[in-house]
Design a protein around this nucleic acid. Structure first.
Length: 273
DNA sequence: ATTGAGACCTGTCGGC
DNA sequence: TGCCGACAGGTCTCAA
């Protein structure tokens, strides 16, 4: 279930259990997730203190006193479950693949039925040269991400907007849901070519400003909703709403669903151009 | 160089 | 109730 807002919620939840605590032991219950765990994974983690617990795109990064970084990704079905010290013990689930035993007494279990997630441990050199992590686009909620930045990566790009937004090298952290939501909010068709938001001279068009603003708004709201639990049931504007009325005031269109590059895209043909 | 399709793996849900 | 296919919020690889 995780796109940027969900991963950010996980980071917030886990931070108090990881940061400043020592990893006493790691229960590695299988040798791999999407990829095999690196050499001496358990030994390199054991005894390390977590200095910072950060998020980059959809990745969680725990920086260790050893200077190495524990990198974790939730894939499609990954989640964490914390058993706080003295709290109720959680039964170990079949899909609990890695359990961190912290010096606070907390146990943090990584659970991932589909095993599309990943977990690895990188030296500073490996981190800087990592083929994926080092080529991620800007964080969408940072000041580095604005219409000009979007115009730079969209210039000359023939790919449809939906695909361009899913490209983590363009902007980092959007997934299938929030890409659809941002395009709907911006009133832009998912199949429109990315380069049409840029002038011949490489300047962002008005639509590029709309899209960057929409991305920021959709993610900011989703993060707020994540952290304030009572809004958990809030629905999306377009995602998974095929056949239902468009929620844009005064639009009156009907949400459609189609497949782009093997993924479902939801949009309103009436107000998204 | 881009781009689309297929693969990875398990669980869930709707229809018959 | 049980079986079967379609589908799921992510990414990687490979062939065109």
């Amino acid at each position: 279930m995780p796109e940027l807002p969900e991963v950010e919620a996980v980071r917030l939840e886990l931070d108090p259990y990881f940061t400043h605590y020592r990893i006493e032991d790691v229960d590695v219950r299988r040798p791999d997730l999407r990829d095999p765990f690196p050499r001496r994974f358990r030994a390199r983690l054991t005894g390390q203190t977590v200095e910072r617990f950060l998020r980059r795109a959809k990745y969680l990064l725990a920086t260790l006193a050893s200077e190495e970084t524990l990198v974790m990704h939730l894939g499609m079905s990954g989640s964490f479950h914390v058993s706080a010290a003295g709290g109720p013990l959680r039964e170990i689930d079949t899909h609990d693949h890695v359990i961190f035993r912290m010096s606070s007494g907390a146990a943090i279990a990584f659970n991932d039925p589909r095993r599309f997630g990943m977990m690895t441990l990188l030296t500073p050199k490996q981190l800087a040269a990592h083929p994926v992590l080092s080529t991620l686009g800007p964080e969408p909620l940072s000041d580095a991400f604005d219409a000009a930045a979007l115009a730079r990566v969209f210039r000359g790009k023939k790919a449809p907007l939906k695909m361009a937004l899913l490209d983590q090298g363009v902007v980092a952290g959007l997934g299938n849901i929030y890409a659809a939501e941002a395009l709907h909010l911006a009133g832009l068709s998912p199949s429109r070519a990315a380069r049409t938001l840029v002038t011949a001279g490489g300047e962002p068009r008005e639509s590029a400003y709309r899209l960057t603003a929409a991305i920021k708004q959709v993610l900011t709201r989703a993060i707020a909703r994540q952290t304030v639990k009572r809004y958990r049931s809030a629905r999306f504007q377009v995602y998974d709403r095929e056949g239902q009325p468009c929620l844009r005031p005064g639009c009156g269109g009907t949400i459609r669903r189609r497949t782009q590059a093997g993924r479902s895209t939801f949009y309103c043909p009436r107000c998204q151009r």
